[in-house]
Design a protein around this nucleic acid. Structure first.
Length: 496
DNA sequence: AAAAAAC
């Protein structure tokens, strides 16, 4: 099963992968029949007890690729107090919670116990769960280490380890923690490592902690996700907000995430957009965990249709029906760009990604284009139709974008986009049937899509199901949390 | 230059 998979091939129903009947039933309940390539490639060797390196972006069904076989492996035995049988490490709290939700969904016919060990919530319930004994531990490194040092966890019985988003862990400086955690686990164990990229440090980590791993690679970086139409909008830095507002209006955004590089920018931009009448919320790492959840819920529920976010939301978060991603700032790290725009164009839907770039961003843009191998289409004044003004700096190589008016921040928005209309099926599972991805009857068919975005105030342009074979296939279970009510054990953790 | 993650 080692090798390279492309989407249209490798069709294999779940029933052929060696999973239990209970599990197949749970998968069927979710509406899936065929595994994604990473699932088809990873599940059999994992069930056989092999170590595995999975190179895959989010959105490829990666989470189910380890959650499903783990459920069957763990279904065999019983947990003992304070001795979890398996451990999944995630870089962010949100991702950890999404994985936990996947365990709930697919493990509903198994009697597995789990604990979600993340920061930002009280330890009490987590400790109680540990004392009862759990089959699966889903954790961010900080809280796990904390609980370990308090003597609340014994990792000596933990013979199945998943290191998810390893490159993200690296970015966040977690590798020393990961190494320390690995040394506390039994040497005789099964280890799965997932990463979107394999920088040298991660390869070393894999060499050190994995034994004769199978290597599964799925080539579908977001850059080659044909569902995403990416544009670069060159602008002056003092015009960014205005250009963004114009884009939000001109683009007929149904649901958008706007990424900023700094938490302060997230806060300020949120305030500014609110003042301009947009239905907007925010998420960043300085917010209380409960507030983060609340904002995500408002976004998912359609109460707001714009979410301003730091990179805490860049990776993994799977919110259905995001029509647009805007990069208010060009991300510092090129791979963050790939992750950010990957929040749209998911599950076969169409998405658009606009990046505002100033002259100072040239180097960062060049790095992104080098990484993705694509030149991002430059768009001009026809996208952000703003009138020229005299104070425009002449130095830019681009035709100057100017402003519609000097004070458009205070003026009322032309339209509040989706806030007044029902949200486009954000709560639905978009995958199983293409028709579900048609958000509303008045939507334009796909052929209406313009090659170059233009202001279209009266036409709705919505993500339409793409005709490509692989997009018609269900894509189970990758990071698909946050689309329904939180499972009970989560709301306990997050609620107070 | 940032963000994230433990208290």
């Amino acid at each position: 099963m080692t090798g390279h998979f492309s989407y249209p091939d490798n069709l294999m129903p779940f029933a052929d992968l060696g999973l239990s009947d209970e599990l197949l039933r749970a998968i069927g309940d979710s509406g899936y029949t065929e595994p994604t390539p990473i699932q088809a490639g990873a599940i059999p060797p994992v069930l056989m007890g092999k170590d595995l390196i999975g190179i895959a972006q989010t959105g490829t069904g990666k989470t189910a690729a380890f959650v499903l076989p783990m459920i069957d492996i763990l279904g065999e035995g019983r947990s003992r107090a304070r001795m979890p049988r398996s451990l999944i490490l995630e870089p962010t709290r949100e991702l950890a919670a999404q994985v936990a939700e996947n365990f709930e969904k697919y493990g509903k016919y198994h009697k597995l116990s789990m604990a979600l060990l993340i920061g930002g919530v009280q330890m009490g319930d987590q400790i109680k769960a540990l004392e009862k004994g759990v089959d699966v531990l889903i954790a961010t490194p900080g809280r796990l280490m904390d609980l370990f040092q308090r003597g609340k966890i014994l990792l000596t019985g933990c013979d199945l380890l998943v290191i998810d988003e390893a490159d993200r862990m690296l970015d966040m400086g977690f590798i020393p923690d990961i190494e320390e955690i690995c040394t506390k686990l039994p040497k005789q164990r099964q280890t799965l490592l997932f990463s979107a990229t394999m920088p040298p440090v991660i390869q070393k980590l894999a060499a050190k902690f994995l034994t004769d791993p199978r290597r599964i690679e799925v080539s579908r970086p977001a850059s080659s996700n044909l569902n995403i139409e990416a544009k670069l909008v060159e602008t002056r830095s003092d015009k960014k907000r205005e250009v963004l507002r114009d884009l939000l209006r001109a683009e007929d955004v149904s649901t958008a995430i706007i990424f900023c590089n700094r938490k302060t920018t997230v806060r300020e931009l949120t305030t500014s957009l609110k003042r301009s009448g947009f239905a907007v919320g925010q998420i960043h790492g300085d917010m209380e965990q409960a507030a983060r959840i609340a904002e995500l819920d408002r976004f998912k529920g359609g109460e707001i249709n714009i979410l301003v976010a730091s990179d805490v939301a860049a990776r993994g978060l799977d919110i259905k029906g995001v029509s647009h991603v805007f990069n208010f700032d060009v991300p510092w790290q090129p791979d963050d760009y790939v992750h950010r725009i990957g929040r749209t164009g998911r599950a076969g839907a169409k998405g658009k990604a606009f990046t505002l770039a100033t002259r100072e961003d040239g180097e960062a843009v060049a790095q992104i284009e080098k990484l993705t191998g694509n030149r991002i289409t430059r768009v001009g004044a026809d996208v952000a139709p703003v009138a020229a003004s005299a104070d425009e700096a002449p130095a830019s190589e681009q035709p100057a974008k100017a402003r519609r008016s000097r004070d458009s921040e205070e003026k009322a928005p032309r339209r509040r986009t989706k806030a007044e209309a029902p949200a486009p099926q954000q709560r639905e599972r978009a995958e199983p049937s293409p028709q579900q991805q048609q958000p509303s009857p008045q939507d334009e068919p796909q052929k209406q899509r313009q090659p170059e975005p233009r202001p279209q105030r009266d036409e709705r342009k919505q993500p339409a199901p793409a005709p490509r074979t692989e997009q018609r296939r269900p894509e189970p279970a990758d990071e698909e949390g946050w689309n329904g009510p939180l499972p009970g054990f989560l709301s306990v953790g997050f609620g107070s």
